[in-house]
Simulated scan of single mutants.
Amino acid sequence: MRLKLHSQSFRARIAGFTMLEVLVSLLITVIGLLGLIGLQAQAQITEFESYQRAQALVLVNDMADRIAFNRAMDASGYVIGWRCYAYTTDPQKYLGMTNTVAAVCADAAIAGDPKTRADADLAAWNNLLQGSAETVTASGTKVGGLLGARGCITRDATTGVIRVSVAWQGMAPTVASADTCATTNYGANDALRRVVFTEVVVPVLTVVP
Score class of each variant (00 low, 15 high):
20 L>F: 06
21 E>S: 08
21 E>G: 14
21 E>C: 15
21 E>W: 08
22 V>H: 05
22 V>Y: 03
22 V>Q: 06
22 V>F: 09
23 L>K: 04
24 V>I: 09
24 V>G: 14
24 V>H: 02
24 V>D: 00
25 S>Q: 01
25 S>Y: 05
26 L>K: 10
26 L>T: 09
26 L>H: 03
26 L>P: 13
26 L>G: 12
26 L>R: 02
26 L>D: 06
27 L>Y: 02
27 L>C: 12
27 L>R: 07
27 L>G: 14
27 L>S: 11
28 I>E: 02
28 I>W: 10
28 I>N: 09
28 I>P: 08
29 T>Q: 04
29 T>H: 06
29 T>A: 14
29 T>C: 04
30 V>K: 11
30 V>F: 15
30 V>N: 07
30 V>A: 13
31 I>T: 06
31 I>H: 13
32 G>V: 08
32 G>A: 05
32 G>Q: 08
32 G>W: 15
32 G>T: 05
33 L>V: 13
33 L>Y: 09
33 L>G: 03
33 L>P: 03
33 L>F: 08
33 L>Q: 03
34 L>Y: 10
34 L>N: 15
35 G>S: 06
35 G>M: 14
36 L>T: 13
36 L>V: 12
36 L>Y: 07
37 I>D: 13
37 I>K: 11
37 I>S: 06
37 I>E: 15
37 I>P: 15
37 I>Y: 15
37 I>C: 08
39 L>H: 07
39 L>S: 09
39 L>I: 15
39 L>C: 06
40 Q>V: 12
40 Q>H: 11
40 Q>A: 02
40 Q>I: 12
40 Q>E: 15
40 Q>M: 02
41 A>R: 10
41 A>P: 15
41 A>V: 14
41 A>W: 15
42 Q>D: 11
42 Q>Y: 12
43 A>R: 02
43 A>E: 14
43 A>N: 15
44 Q>D: 09
44 Q>S: 12
45 I>C: 03
45 I>E: 14
45 I>H: 11
47 E>V: 07
47 E>F: 05
47 E>R: 14
48 F>N: 10
48 F>P: 12
48 F>Q: 11
48 F>Y: 13
48 F>E: 05
48 F>W: 10
49 E>Y: 02
50 S>M: 06
50 S>F: 00
50 S>V: 01
51 Y>T: 07
51 Y>S: 07
52 Q>H: 05
52 Q>I: 00
52 Q>M: 09
52 Q>L: 01
53 R>A: 00
53 R>E: 00
53 R>F: 01
54 A>T: 11
54 A>G: 07
55 Q>K: 07
55 Q>F: 00
55 Q>N: 05
56 A>G: 01
56 A>Q: 07
57 L>P: 03
57 L>R: 10
57 L>E: 03
57 L>Q: 15
58 V>I: 10
58 V>H: 01
58 V>A: 03
59 L>R: 01
60 V>M: 01
60 V>L: 04
60 V>A: 01
60 V>H: 00
60 V>Y: 01
61 N>Y: 13
61 N>I: 04
61 N>R: 06
61 N>F: 03
61 N>L: 11
62 D>N: 10
62 D>E: 11
62 D>L: 05
62 D>K: 00
62 D>M: 02
63 M>N: 04
63 M>W: 02
63 M>T: 03
64 A>T: 01
64 A>I: 10
65 D>R: 12
65 D>E: 11
65 D>C: 03
65 D>N: 11
65 D>K: 02
